[in-house]
Nucleic acid binder design. Structure first.
Lengths: 262, 262
DNA sequence: CGGCTGCTTGAACTTGTTCAACAGCGGTGG
DNA sequence: CCACCGCTGTTGAACAAGTTCAAGCAGCCG
């Protein structure tokens, strides 16, 4: 059940058995089962829990006063959530479930314990944050410079590889529970146009959809269509190479912070 | 000379004289004077210095293979830079000077010392990171949902308030060294369209430009035009209210990281 | 003076939006 | 069981927004 999280973190650094057990322990916390289309966090909420997404898909989103809504990112199993709330400052964006999901609350104390006892886990968490900030820069680039077709192809590549890394693809087939409304919100176009663009990718023989499954028919071509650069997904390689570096205690976390700040 | 930085940090939390002295000390590090239009960091560079922007304007930017370029954020005096490089992982985006600038290198040791000795300064740094991540979410929303005119007005509001907070506006006049090419890169439109949109704002009596100065003629109206929500700029208020909270050592930095990760 | 950079303009074109209608499907209640 | 509803996906046509190309202009610097 918690494989996604373990796979996710393992993709950044090798975890020992002790690390894995520590994770199991961490996730024994309060567990929430959430239906699809539920609002987990509203703009303005104050939260004080740290959470992990164990199962299901969520999206972060932010509204304009007049109702226009942008999807900021898609959260997949193994992702870290809601730390924004842990500052006791009001959230400036919302979090909504796309599918049925399972979320686990973790206390600050638990996280701190991990930071102190398992440098590798700490490092892996750190990498997740670097990764997320790289993702958000990639989205900025997409929204600002790519065409709708490129953005759509890029979104699919991103999701494909992220799912791949947590062992949730097989033979180029992946879950794809996003409605065209959500796709439109993510790539910054109207629902109607999202439809036409998806259709275009299907007609071009790049993808195939059946229900809530999506099959990538020609990944290299899809990546070229998207001007997709897989480097940014491979934080782990860059980081692995330096994993022998001396541990830097607090400095670590300052670094993460800054990195993540775009 | 270092007033911008002090003003910036003070806007988040009240600094004692000791804090100010610690800052002065911090900034006695290696100092770089940079001309306008210089590349400080290239995509792919590996850096290991932490830096502060003391004077001048910079921009972060990211290229697509075919040359299209998106500005990711504008850095103003007092901003934190380049921590991305401190991970020894390759930068996934570039950093370029817009005006003549002054940048100071800071060692990891110095930052760590601050974290250990001055909870207030630590808190203020933390707030800067939260702020930066809120900014990047706001940019995502802009690029995805606002029209070019709204985005342009929003950019001007953002810069106006950020400059205001470091004492660099007076009577609604601010420096505005951005060429229309950079404005276009930031709001995701062509240079030609950036020109027409700026012109439109001028004709509407919202702003006035003269050389590299810009005067905001009707701030409330400009903000309405931009669908500008000033909440996100006021991290400090949210944070001030909790500044008596018990210090949480390492947890702090994990929080920053996550927050900043969008 | 010439050459450069940045700003401005017009006109044709491409991309994406909006509105409106309809089809398919699963669920629900009678 | 069927009728109906709401949600998602699909389509066409008119329209609005932004791009591209091409030219010209203004100011600045050597």
């Amino acid at each position: 059940m918690y494989n996604a999280l373990i796979n996710r973190l393992s993709s950044f650094t090798e975890l020992s058995n002790t690390d894995r057990e520590a994770l199991q322990e961490l996730l024994r916390g309060r567990c929430h089962v959430v239906d699809a289309n539920q609002q987990l966090v509203n703009d303005g909420d104050r939260l004080d829990a740290v959470r992990f997404l164990v199962e299901g898909w969520l999206c972060r989103h932010k509204y304009l006063e007049d109702g226009r809504c942008q999807v900021l990112s898609i959260c997949l199993p193994g992702d870290l959530l809601d730390l924004v709330g842990s500052n006791s400052s009001a959230a400036d964006h919302g979090l909504r479930s796309i599918t049925n999901s399972v979320v686990v609350d973790i206390t600050c104390r638990q996280v701190e314990a991990i930071l102190l006892t398992s440098p590798r886990l700490a490092r892996a968490l750190h990498c997740m944050l670097i990764f997320q900030s790289a993702l958000s820069r990639e989205w900025l680039l997409s929204l600002g410079q790519r065409t709708a077709r490129e953005r759509c192809a890029h979104l699919i590549c991103e999701l494909y590889w992220r799912l791949h890394d947590i062992g949730m693809t097989s033979d180029f087939v992946m879950d794809f529970p996003l409605t065209q409304e959500v796709v439109g919100g993510a790539i910054g176009v109207s629902t109607v146009h999202a439809n036409r663009v998806m259709q275009d990718l299907r007609l071009a023989g790049l993808i195939e959809q059946c229900g809530k499954k999506l099959k990538v028919l020609d990944l290299p071509l899809l990546e070229r269509t998207a001007l997709f650069n897989s480097d940014f997904l491979h934080v782990e390689q860059l980081v692995r190479s330096t994993r022998e570096a001396p541990q830097q205690s607090k400095m670590w976390w300052l670094l993460s912070s800054a990195v993540a700040g775009c």
